[in-house]
Write a protein that binds this DNA or RNA. Structure first.
Lengths: 332, 332
DNA sequence: TTGAAAGCGCTAACAA
DNA sequence: TTGTTAGCGCTTTCAA
């Protein structure tokens, strides 16, 4: 890789000091008009471009933030990412995207790794790490914004949707349609979204005076194949549920795959609701009733909060709940 | 942001030189077992982590590559991104994701910007820039891999799918089903994927001895609303086509929206084929016949080629065509 | 309005 | 097997 001209060469050509060239660029000190012209000409002639790495080393700011998510391929995250980038681009920040695949190891490795790279801030959808795994983050006082309520720490802002309330709304909607045997395909236990959505489901049953039937709750893993597998267990039940709340849309789609194979008609034989409202939800047959998870807005809000912290905000932790919304469609 | 311990502090505590600490880390020089132990203990005790920026400045390698794409929110790109990251993560590289929104300005700005940040390589889906806009890339000899055939330069590897052949296959499939009035919703003119898919459509007509009817080809913009708008013009035609090839799935989905509103039944009143095979294509009603655009594999291949260039490959330009595949479903 | 000089934290000749 | 030393290219005190 060939190196370009340095600030010293520009300075020499313009007949000024590197200090002046630097200031002509940053505007952090007045530079006489004539001097500035000579510098600009030299820059043009040499095709000079400042070296961002050297600048970062000196200023301790990389103008880069890390976005640590499970998987960019899950339709929820691109939308989140875009919300973030839209606000951070305005501040001149770039975004490093890290896919953890929900592996505890990768979650930890990426945090350590981006810290070494001196990112100015971190946005993370953590599925395993908790506050005490982040001591290096706090030690170096790197601004951190978390998606979801998993990480609790005075220096960490949280932006999340109210998953329990969303799940309650979806389940109540199924119940209001007359269903009394309402099952659920849940997420992996231990994860906040899983637990919250499960608890919302329970709340709705309780409010309606319906019993919680353990075999009607089958565990999935938030993927389409996982939903299909879970659905197989439900289809095999002696007494099947007439309605099903799935903890995310991907699993609902998997459940539909299996229901089809089993010859079930939707929503007549089985009513269905999902969670997230990914774009595909509207295209399904039948279109999927689901809870809108406003990813883009979550991202934009998180980006804004990170920007504030990177600009010096040192106040108490903030927790923002972005409103969800039940989207009623044909599936239930 | 508080600074952590430096290599000098580790060296002092371990009673060795910074050189030795550096080599204990990199393994680029043998270090006596006892010495290594003392260094490791010092590292532990101090919680030392190397500063990646300083390292990059010195080594001129940032271990970062840029992925410049139109929009991570278009379902095609996350898949591409994942293919890339899967192979680059193995080499210890991070990926900076840049969304250009297909704006010529942003395309140019991002290239300049990531060059300033000393990325080790660039992967780009360019929609406006051509080789002569990339002189800085070539000047600095930064490895560059392009998606699509737009950028032609001896130092640029290209990975692409054969869009013309894919479009031809899709159109021929519609013709084989008995349609003689086959329209198209094309992409914005001037973009290689637009032109290639249009030309494939033309080829198929020609091969079948069918005339090219200009008003049956309506221009879209690769978005869902754009497809809906284009479809409105087609619906308004006196003599409508009985089949329609859309230059991507998103536009096909938009077209379906409009067709529904107009009371058309698919595929009876109108047969439809798309391009890309995004995940939603299988969920549509009717499910969408489309051309599989193997994004993940394109990404993985591009990542591999970039890795080779970053590892010193200086050979001639390579162009890899990843095979497409027609996926026949219910829509046509 | 400008410059000299120190130094960010690391790596790698070169020397021993 | 280890250390000395010179930077990488930039920003920023301090001084004029």
């Amino acid at each position: 890789m060939r190196r370009g001209p340095t600030i010293a060469e520009v300075a020499e050509r313009a007949g000024v000091s590197t200090t002046t060239v630097s200031h002509a660029f940053s505007g952090r000190r007045p530079v006489a008009a004539g001097t500035r012209d000579r510098v600009e000409r030299a820059v043009q002639e040499l095709g000079y471009r400042p070296n961002g790495v050297a600048r970062s080393l000196r200023t301790r700011r990389s103008q880069t933030v890390a976005l640590i998510i499970p998987d960019i391929t899950n339709p929820y995250y691109p939308s989140l990412a875009r919300g973030i980038q839209n606000v951070l681009a305005g501040g001149g920040y770039h975004v490093l995207v890290c896919n953890t695949d929900r592996e505890p190891r990768y979650e930890a490795e990426y945090v350590a790794d981006v810290l070494d790279r001196q990112v100015d801030g971190i946005l993370m959808a953590a599925f395993h790490l908790v506050a005490r795994d982040l001591e290096d983050v706090f030690l170096h006082e790197v601004p951190f914004v978390a998606f979801g309520a998993r990480i609790v720490h005075p220096a960490v802002d949280v932006v999340r949707s109210d998953d329990a309330a969303g799940a309650r709304d979806a389940t109540s909607h199924l119940i209001a349609a007359g269903h009394t045997r309402v099952g659920m395909i849940s997420g992996p236990p231990g994860l906040p979204p899983s637990e919250a959505r499960l608890s919302g489901y329970r709340q709705a049953l309780a409010e309606a005076g319906l019993p919680l039937v353990p075999e009607l709750v089958v565990q999935g893993d938030f993927t389409r194949p996982g939903g299909a597998t879970a659905m197989r267990r439900i289809v095999a039940l002696e007494e099947r549920p007439t309605a099903l709340f799935c903890a995310n849309d991907l699993m609902a789609i998997g459940a539909i795959d299996t229901a089809r194979e089993a010859g079930l008609r939707l929503p007549d034989d089985l009513a269905l609701a999902g969670y997230d409202d990914i774009e595909a939800a509207a295209f399904l047959t039948p279109s999927l009733t689901t809870v809108l998870n406003p990813a883009h807005e979550l991202g934009a809000t998180a980006g804004r909060m990170l920007l504030e912290r990177m600009s010096g905000y040192r106040g108490p932790r903030r927790e923002v709940v972005i409103p969800h919304r039940l989207v009623k469609r044909e599936s239930g």
